[in-house]
Design a protein around this nucleic acid. Structure first.
Lengths: 217, 217
DNA sequence: CGATAGTAGACAGCACCACTATCCATAATC
DNA sequence: GATTATGGATAGTGGTGCTGTCTACTATCG
């Protein structure tokens, strides 16, 4: 197909497709003449993936480009891919002041040990989580570590579900995409389900009549 | 304190504080003369909250303003607050094509029923989740509904933990802030813990030696 | 008291991001 | 042969989140 059809089938404007081509997020089409190219279903699929990561996952164009270049690299192993995807979709905030930050990192790592998890104390998510803890405490929320602790065993179940999903892939390409889609769209699933669960739990605990009922709405 | 001290104590540049004042995210200080004002600890706290929502929660200035104006409204009830906060932090993507979207919404609501949750079929998160489902399917991920289904009971536990946290507040102001902080920072906690759980589960299932070990890093 | 530094408020400017528009020469299509 | 589409290049646009500059004043310190 030519670029016009690709645009129609994907819902992405032609100039935007050209922009993605320039940015290397979409491989060039097969040349049929000096100024003509042909695109196929792989381009359509890639374009949909790009839009999914941007629209649903909320990623920046730069983050998408980073992920895709790792996916496309022939030597891309799971290690690189996981790290790239995980970091792309988790904008790590600036760590807090050194002392509060490092002691919070220790507390987080203690929690990880307590949970029996097999992760390095220097995992970037440990740092990120410690920053969240420091931030919450700077707002006077001193119960926040207990809040995090309570989340631990629950998120462990999520991790198991995630690995089950990824392992269900048939080919290597499927696996790579399952990691990307599972991680990025998975975050959206988690957050939206959390909203629903909160609304439901609120309605259950406070079944107040009248206008309060719409809390579950 | 004057604006300079507020800046030093919060780590926010003076022109930025002025910008937040202009935008109504920070209440004006108490005037001591036509061009002097004094700020107190409530300003410092509010400023930290703003930065937390922006830096850690990743919210836009507009979203923060919306949340804070609801928090500040004297007649703000839990209903308004929950909705505003939940929507601010969940950028709802454009729904997909009408037919695929509405059938997906039905599937999601069926799942909600299956889980025994008390939420309206028109809850905005139902629509958002349906959009995620449609997107995943457009990428050929037809196992995705099962993936979502698996998340359901797990996220229910999160909802319970969230309500427990909010209910632990002592005053009305504490409660309002617990909702905001619990929702926004809670999302960050969830996502970062998910990264750690994924890494740990990966390390457990594939304890490959050598360079593979750093998957858990 | 005067020198220096800080402040409120108004307004303009800036860097970045994600496109979008325009143009041209060529190619495809009717 | 007329119309429409295309590839490629370059420039422009609109939104966001600050940042810089200016002026008239105020605070502080030796």
């Amino acid at each position: 197909m030519r670029i016009g059809e690709l645009s129609k089938r994907s819902g992405v404007a032609v100039p935007t497709i050209k922009y993605y081509l320039r940015e290397g997020m979409l491989p060039p089409g097969e040349r049929t003449s000096p100024n003509q190219a042909r695109y196929d279903d792989t381009h359509l699929h890639r374009l949909r993936l790009v839009r999914a990561l941007i629209d649903v996952g909320g990623l920046s164009v730069a983050a998408v480009r980073g992920i895709l270049s790792t996916v496309d690299a022939p030597e891309s192993d799971m290690e690189d891919l996981l790290k790239t995807v995980q970091k792309a979709v988790l904008p790590v905030p600036e760590p807090a002041a050194v002392d509060a930050q490092s002691s919070a990192e220790k507390e987080i790592h203690d929690l990880v040990i307590e949970l029996g998890w097999d992760v390095s104390p220097k995992h970037f998510a440990v740092e990120a989580l410690a920053t969240v803890l420091v931030t919450a405490r700077s707002l006077g929320h001193d119960r926040f570590l207990d809040f995090i602790r309570r989340y631990g065993p629950i998120m462990q179940q999520i991790g198991v579900a995630d690995l089950d999903y990824v392992v269900g892939a048939r080919t290597v390409d499927d696996l790579l995409e399952a990691v990307v889609v599972g991680t990025v769209l998975g975050d959206s699933v988690m957050i939206t389900l959390r909203r629903l669960a909160q609304a439901s739990e609120t309605a259950t605990r406070f079944p107040g009549g009248g206008d309060r009922q719409s809390l579950s709405d």
